[in-house]
Each structure stands twice: as C-alpha cells, then as structure tokens.
Design a protein around this nucleic acid. Structure first.
Length: 669
DNA sequence: GAGCTTTCAATCCT
DNA sequence: CAGGATTGAAAGCT
C-alpha cells in the first residue's frame, strides 16, 4: 500500500488521505476546446435533437435565463385541490398520434390536427390536476407499445417516476393529513396505462426487450408498464399458449417478495410458494388449489419454459420500502405440496436459474457479505479513502490490474469558495421553526423554489430546475429539515474502482432510485479556467459554462397542471460561470467518469452561509441505478473559443469518449 | 362488456 | 417499528 505524504505544497489544508499514487494518468480532461461548434465532434444517429430518454424537444443551448433575483419573487404555485386520474372514455390514441421516429431524431409530440380541433378536454372539474388531451403526448409508437427497446423502457420508467414524484409532491403540500392522492405510484401508473404510455404489452415467455437482468424497480406498477410482469399485485403472471389442439396456461414471470414463505437464500435457486389458500388468513386458511397461477406453474414445469424471476427485498437505504430486482430467466425443476404451519396445503415450486446469465441478485448477495466484513472483498486496496471525512466509508478497489490507487489528493466533503469569490445574491433564509413544511408558502426558501418543495417526503428530488434553493446553515429550521437534502453528506456506500479502460470510476453498493442525491462536486472554486495551473488541464475540473446535452427529466407537461401548456425550464442556470477544480482537493465526485448516456445529472443548488449565498453542484440519480453500476454524468463540452486561443495548448481539448453508449458522441470535454 | 374476483401493494395508523 | 387495516389497479373470468 502506498502511503506517502507530501507531493503537494498546500499543507495548509489538513491532509486527510494519503493514498499516494503512482502513475495514474487521470482520464478526464477538461478544459477546452472546440474552436467552433462547426467542428464539434460527429454525432451519433440519434443526436439531432434527440434527448437520450424520450423524445421531448427541449430547448437547447441559450436557455432563457431567468434572473435569479426576480425568480425569488415569482408567484407561488396555484393552490392545490384534488385529483383523480381515471380516464373514463378510452377513445383510442391509435393512429391519432404520429409515432416517434428515432432514426431521424424528430420528436413528434403533437397530435394531428384532427385531435387538435377537438375541444380541450379536462377530466373532472373538482381537480386542479387533470389530463389535458391537447398537451399530452404519448411518445410511444404502436410498434414500441408491442415490443420495447432500451430507450423506450428507460423513457417510460423515467416518465412514470417523474409523474409519481410530482404527485407525491402535491400530496405532501396538502394541509389535510389524509390527502387525496394516496397512492402516487398507482395514480401515475394509471395515467400512463390509460394513455398507453407502456411497452411490451404483448405477453411473452422469456426475455422482454429493453429490460435487462439486474434492472431494479421500486413499484409494481413500473413492471406493469414495461411488460415485465403484468399483474399489479399478483405474484404469478401467466398466459394462454396453444399446445397441439388445446390451450394451456403457462407462467411467464413471478415476483418473490417475501409475502409467502419462499426460500430465496440461494442466488441460483428459488423455492416459490403458490398463490391463494393460506394467504387468506381472515377467512381461515384453506388449501391452495391447482388453478390460475398455480396451474400455470405446473404446466410450465411440464413444458420446461423459461420463467422470469423478480426478487423483491427490503431497500437497504429505505427500510420501509421495497426494491425489486429482475434476476433473469429460471426454469421450474420440480413441484410439490407442503403442509403449511396453518395445517393446509400449499404448492411449492423449485426454480433454478438458467446458467450463463449475468449476476443480478447475486450481486446483492455479495454486497451483503461485504457489509458484514471486507475480508471477502476481492481487490480491496483501502477500506476508506476518505479517512473518516465522510460519515460512511468509501472503499478503494482494483480487481482488474496492479495499480494501487489514483493520484494523491486531499479529501474534502464540500466545495471551497475562495475569499475573493463573491456572488451578488442577496442572502436571506427562512424563519421556519423545526422543519420547513411543504405547502407552507410563508417559508421564503419554499417561495424561492416557485412554491414547490424540491424534495419528496423520502428525500428524492422532484424536478430539475435552473436553480434549487435549499435552507442554509443560518436558517433556523432544524438540520434534519428536508430542504437540505444535498447537505447531509454521503449516505450510500460508494466505492472508487478501477475500470477496464477508463481509469478510476465510481459506483455504489446501495441502489439509487431516480432523484436520489448522491454527492456534490467538491473542490476549490476557481475564477477562470486560465487559473487552472500548469498540469491541471488534464482533468478534475467541473465547469458550468460547458455546453451540456439537453434532456427532459421532469414530469409531463400538459398532464398534471391545468395550465400545463407552459413547460417549465429545467436546464441548470447559474448566474455566472462556476468552475471547480478537484485536482488537489476534492471528494468522490472527482472519480465520476463521463458518459454520453449517463445515469447521473448535476443540479445547481444555492444556500446561504454567513449572509452570503453559495452555489453547490449536486449530483442526482437520473434513473434507478442498480448497485455496482458505474455512475457517470455528461461532462458537456467546452464551447469557448477564447479558451482555445489561450495558450494554444495541444494537450488539452476534447477527449475520445469510451462510454460505449449507442448514442455516444465520440468525444467529450 | 360491465361487473366481480383475485392478487407476494403500499401506505397509514396504532 | 411491526403488523393490522385500508385503499387500491390490472386483468382474468363470468
């Protein structure tokens, strides 16, 4: 292990970590330089106006720049009333909407004129929230509805969660304790189901296109929408299949989530209980019958068809909720009848995982072991590279080669502003006691966020915004106020690991649901890129003045608010360019690699400290991220011609991108 | 095809 | 905080 101090001259900062490093050539490059946009790197087939997630044509580049000072005075959101999602008339959308043509990148989100002529239809009048037929765009073509692909699956999953978060936000803001939107997951699911924003509707045995082994879900409705497992509650999904002259039911997927007494200890074997009977405890336990799902499983045993297995378990971060992992294809090996404790008969099915599939549940099992003790962790170099600077350890591992660690740096958990750096923002906090309450428009911090509390009750970011305003150290509310989500330090067990071909990277033992705060970008705020010292141009700088690929993350416009025709801007906007160097001083964020199809995005967050407002760059999960998945964000590209002229450095500039995404732009930085 | 039934949800409440 | 009560949505069935 290489522990050697020094090297860096800045002894003024306490040296927390001394992982001295060897020959690490950091992969990221920063700074500069496309002389002109015309020389921008070649774009993939999707790039013209295609946001990787779903076909919204979001404004690109020069976003209307709202004046942040004025923004704090904007009127709060309209008062909220009630909501109901059900859509009575199912007048078909088939044919009414042009399908999205991914190959040209043209996003056609407008209905054809025939439907435009139709009077704007608002569902129930006692709601503020409703479906606006003219502004809602399905965005899923007829063929994509039958058979999905990765993009469509991600798009639908993200749209579902964006809507669910928004509905939760509205629910949180209600004064009445028993809200109208009780189940935001079901409401969001119901809206998208009704609108045919779903895929893989045709039931099938085996793989579901676009859904990959290891994908995770936090609600059963997500799996309904994606066609992975159709029933909203039942554990066994089956379909009728013609066999010779008759039809028989065959199981296509099962969810094992602990409600019954399954045996799910082995990652390759699952003992699954049949449905019915013993479940009905109130009616007195009865024998399970060989019907419905049980019959289908029995027939699938005979037929030997593949059955998808989804394993549900407690979320390690949020013990109250559940996470579902798609564990791939299994085959039913045998079945039997067992006497349950209640004395009645239940069916048991032994499912065996088909070999050769990537680990999914197995990864979770391994992580469980690592939590108990790191001795089982292969390639471990350091148990905690922060040396206690964070409340959770960050492991350093390398199981691909002999390199012993990244180049030396000092670990800090937050961004450091130099004294000379001043923002002209007026600084004032709220006057809330205890914790700021969603819906309380007397809270000035909430008013700064357009009246919306930025986070849901379980701490997930609801929407992106040009700027998020959190409560700061001088706000009188308690430190556990939910409007400080980005200030609580690391919560997940992260690890820095050696990638195969992109230097060091960052990943997590814990899964993230979309919108979860992961970490901020810590480092030293520098005034100009030119201040980056010699040798620092090779990486480790975050620069808000880069041009970032635009993408849509927030909930559907035209779907929730009645006046949803106005699509709120969600692209980040900072009053003046912010450049943070993590070369010498930084946190885990400095290890996050670039991807053209990232799973993490950055969001500027402002809060006050000592009568000054400071901006922090916070990273949030773009979509659900399974454990041990590399975390990546879009580095954007430098567009400054001056930077190119400056020094004429040839060593700087764009870097060849190795992200491997289908929509890879080829270069970044 | 409306209505009923079943169902390894999810959340609230105690 | 575990567990019971409550409210639920989809799809198969009748």
């Amino acid at each position: 292990m290489v522990m050697e101090g020094g090297g860096s001259g800045n002894n003024s900062t306490p040296i927390i970590d001394k992982t001295r490093v060897l020959d690490v050539e950091p992969l990221r490059t920063l700074v500069p330089v496309f002389p002109s946009s015309s020389k921008a790197p070649p774009f993939g087939p999707y790039s013209s106006g295609f946001a990787p997630f779903y076909p919204f044509s979001a404004p690109q580049g020069s976003q209307a720049t709202p004046d942040l000072n004025q923004q704090t005075h904007t009127t709060p959101a309209a008062p909220l009333r009630s909501f109901r999602a059900t859509e009575s008339n199912g007048d078909a959308f088939d044919g009414e909407y042009e399908s999205y043509d991914g190959s040209t990148g043209s996003a056609k989100r407008r209905p054809k004129s025939s439907s435009q002529k139709r009077a704007r239809k608002i569902q129930d009048l006692d709601f503020t929230l409703s479906v606006d037929e003219n502004n809602f765009v399905v965005g899923v073509s007829l063929s994509e509805r039958d058979d999905g692909n990765r993009e469509v699956v991600h798009s639908i999953q993200m749209r579902f969660d964006a809507l669910r978060r928004r509905l939760s936000q509205l629910e949180d803001a209600k004064e009445s304790p028993a809200g109208i939107i009780r189940r935001a997951d079901l409401k969001a699911g119901n809206i998208l189901m009704t609108k045919q924003v779903r895929t893989n509707t045709r039931k099938r045995i085996g793989t579901v296109p676009g859904v990959e082994i290891g994908d995770i879900f936090f609600f059963r409705m997500e799996m309904c929408l994606l066609g992975l497992h159709a029933p909203s509650m039942a554990g066994i999904d089956y379909m009728s299949v013609r066999n010779d002259l008759e039809e028989e039911p065959l199981a296509v997927s099962i969810v094992s989530s602990g409600y019954y007494d399954d045996d799910a200890e082995d990652k390759d074997v699952l003992i699954y209980s049949g449905q019915g009977g013993a479940a009905n405890k109130d009616k007195g336990a009865t024998d399970q019958k060989l019907e419905r799902g049980n019959l289908a499983l029995e027939r699938s045993l005979r037929r030997g068809n593949e059955v998808r297995v989804i394993r549900g378990m407690k979320d390690s971060v949020n013990q109250a909720s559940k996470v579902y992992v798609y564990d791939g294809l299994f085959r039913i090996q045998e079945s039997w009848v067992e006497k349950a404790k209640s004395g009645c008969n239940i069916f048991k099915y032994k499912l065996v995982r088909i070999p050769g599939q990537p680990d999914a549940f197995g990864v979770w099992k391994s992580i469980e072991k690592w939590r108990e003790g790191l001795s089982s962790r292969a390639g471990l170099i350091l148990p905690d590279l922060t040396s206690g600077a964070e409340s959770v350890p960050v492991a350093l591992v390398n199981d691909v080669d002999e390199e012993k660690g990244p180049a030396y740096f000092t670990y800090v958990s937050t961004v450091k502003y130099s004294k000379s750096f001043k923002l002209t923002q007026p600084a004032y906090g709220c006057n809330c006691r205890n914790a700021c309450q969603p819906g309380n428009l007397n809270c000035s911090c909430i008013r700064k966020n357009e009246g919306n509390f930025p986070y849901t009750a379980n701490g997930v970011l609801v929407c992106r915004a040009p700027m998020i305003h959190e409560c700061g150290p001088t706000c009188p509310c308690f430190p556990n106020c939910k409007n400080r989500a980005s200030q609580t330090g690391l919560k997940a067990r992260l690890e820095v690991f050696k990638t195969k071909d992109r230097g060091w990277g960052l990943r997590s033992w814990d899964s993230f649901r979309a919108g979860t705060f992961i970490c901020e970008y810590a480092g030293e705020v520098i005034e100009k890129v030119s201040q980056v010292g010699e040798g620092e141009g090779d990486g480790y700088v975050f620069d808000t003045s880069h041009v970032y690929e635009s993408f849509k993350w927030n909930y559907e416009p035209g779907l929730v608010e009645e006046d949803g025709s106005i699509e709120a801007i969600e692209e980040p906007n900072v009053p003046s360019p912010l450049v943070i160097s993590s070369k010498n001083v930084g946190n885990v964020a400095r290890f996050m690699n670039h991807s053209c199809y990232p799973n993490v995005f950055w969001q500027p967050i402002m809060y006050e400290n000592n009568n000054e407002s400071f901006i922090h760059i916070a990273f949030f999960a773009m979509r659900h991220i399974p454990p041990m998945t590399e975390l990546t964000f879009d580095y954007g590209k430098s567009c400054s011609g001056e930077a190119a002229a400056d020094g004429g450095s040839t060593s700087r500039g764009r870097r060849k991108c190795l992200c491997g995404a289908p929509i890879c732009r080829g270069y970044f930085g």
